[in-house]
Design a protein around this nucleic acid. Structure first.
Lengths: 245, 245
DNA sequence: TCTTTTTTGTGTAAAAAATACACAACTTTG
DNA sequence: CAAAGTTGTGTATTTTTTACACAAAAAAGA
């Protein structure tokens, strides 16, 4: 009863013209939105701009733009970032796509959210624009579109990420004190941490370079300054195996 | 020198017609692709189908489809999943968007990748189609489009996720033995784990329900069967705070 | 210049978690 | 009934995490 006649390569069903196929696909408008975080006065801030849609008058929105033809999503996000901050070499990572059909009042627009981290005090950064400003993440509300949801998700993403990867250093100046570093972690995670254990933890990682400089112009005893050893980190990333939930 | 005249509400720049705005946006074809994982014979498998594009003749691709008008991405992914597996209540989560302009030979198509986990032996699941089959993840190569990259990324995502969340149970039958559970973790993480420590770990979590049944039809001493206590897990999710990289 | 305030910098003890490791009992198979 | 393969369990060691206190340094203000 074995059937030996195998119907190999049923060529009759194969599509020859891929271009024609794609031309028939429905298309949707696609944007990127960037949650650009900064750290100032021991607070996590996010860069927002007044919405230019009348129905969202007075509400803030994230920086975003249309994705251009033949532009990668990462490129588009980076373009938005560069256009508004003038900065290069900024940390940027995709978080996820948001696709609720009613998320944009003008009709269906799908957006891909990006999370970006930068040092607010960087010299290249010039937020002259009155409409553009740093807003404390904790007091943010009433944003345009679904941007509050996007910020919330990017913030959660950041909270998790910062515990597992050395992202936080993107928010600090190149040289920083252990107190600044701890303030950063406390602000982002929303917890207070034991100072001695915090320092011990970073000491045991051995990824901070003591540059033998002290803080300047602080209204108290200055602390030592450190740099993060990105090079060592890159070469010694360890893979953690464990089960914990 | 203080300027008191504030230009409040520059209404002249606000956009009234959001619909008109969106109509002017460029549009792109958008798809979803699902990396549907299953676990069989102590191996992680992924559901693949022969590509229907002539230029990818003989190559496998993931299951995917166009995102329809007014369809959410999650919906579209779920629709793909349901159409091919007939299954409901399947684990599904967005991984990320892939947007390389040359990723599709027919022109620009952006895709959003989803990761799905299901029990291969589930009774509703019927992979009759000759062209559709379970392929071992470890031996997968030469896929159509950028689907190998997508699978790799979904697999990495899964490896990380399974250590922090109880996803793995979606790949097992409702009742499973500790050996099956350990085989699953070992296969996905690609490591071997100490049996006693593995069991101790799960015992200490106290999330497995001993249902007082034994394995049937195994060619050796049968082990106890357990269920995962999803209810308890949901109510007792703990937030872990720590720094480790 | 002296006192107050604030912050830096450090160590140890206890608890918890992770790791390494071995043996007896059970079930099936032949 | 012997052999093979697997289940189920405990303890000792090491590592990691946590909790906790005090002296010294610098700045600010009197």
């Amino acid at each position: 009863m074995k059937k030996n006649i195998q119907q190999e390569k049923p060529h009759e069903h194969l599509i020859k013209d891929a271009k024609k196929l794609v031309l028939a696909y429905p298309k949707v408008p696609l944007t990127v939105d960037c949650a650009i975080f900064g750290f100032e006065e021991s607070q996590l801030k996010v860069l927002v701009i007044k919405s230019d849609l009348e129905m969202y008058d007075g509400h803030y929105s994230l920086l975003g733009d249309i994705v251009q033809d033949n532009e990668e999503l990462d490129e588009a996000a980076y373009r938005v970032l560069k256009a508004r901050t003038g900065m290069n070499d900024v940390f940027l990572d995709q978080v996820r796509a948001f696709s609720h059909p009613a998320r944009h009042p003008g009709g269906r627009v799908i957006t891909v959210a990006y999370c970006s981290l930068l040092n607010i005090n960087h010299h290249q950064l010039k937020i002259h624009d009155n409409e553009l400003n740093w807003h404390s993440v904790s007091t943010l509300k009433d944003m345009a579109f679904d941007h509050k949801e996007i910020v919330d998700e990017c913030y959660s993403w950041l909270q998790k990420r910062i515990q597992e990867h050395p992202l936080g250093f993107n928010l600090l100046p190149e040289k920083f004190s252990l107190r600044e570093l701890q303030n950063l972690y406390e602000a982002i995670l929303g917890v207070s941490l034991d100072r001695r254990n915090f320092r011990k933890k970073f000491a045991s990682m051995d990824l901070l370079i003591d540059i033998n400089e002290m803080e300047q112009d602080v209204p108290h005893r200055p602390g030592k300054l450190y740099k993060f050893n990105f090079e060592k980190y890159e070469t010694s990333k360890r893979k953690w195996i464990g089960i914990d939930f």
